[in-house]
Amino acid sequence: MSMRRSPELRPTVWDGLTALAVLLLALGLAFFQWRGGGESGELTAVVTIDGEEADRFAPAELLNAPRTYTHNGYTLEVVLGVDYENPPLNALPPVGTSGICVAVSDCPTRDCVRTGIISRGGQSIVCLPARVIIRLEGGAADPDAPDAVLG
């Protein structure tokens, strides 16, 4: 006895589109998970004041204007800096490491200013009197870079 196939069971264009939509959805979600919730990605400066995140920005934004943070009676000015490997006049454009630094602070220790330029994810500038921490996150991963520095 032969059975005739029901036309309703044949795949249609709509079935194909549904399958495609499900596939795209799955790929999209997989990509979202693969990104790891933003753990890597662009280099970002995260500023915490007294333990609370107060600001988050790309270092390049400092080209427009420095950022100023005031807390605990002290004020810090954060700027984009270049740590020149050669005197600026000897090389055009100057060769060096660019990063962020605290250019001015009226805190008593000025450790934040002395820290100099930070340029790599994981590095931070701390101002204890103002209770401000500026930390770089993300950026290119370097397996040989130290995870922490003693000192």
């Binding site: 100099g116 590095q123 995870d147 520095v149 000192g151």
Partner: peptide, 14 residues
């Protein structure tokens, strides 16, 4: 874990 030891002669250079 890789833990660096700061050069005391250049404490301001991370």
């Amino acid at each position: 874990w890789r833990v660096g030891i700061q050069d005391p002669a250049h404490p301001d250079d991370k």
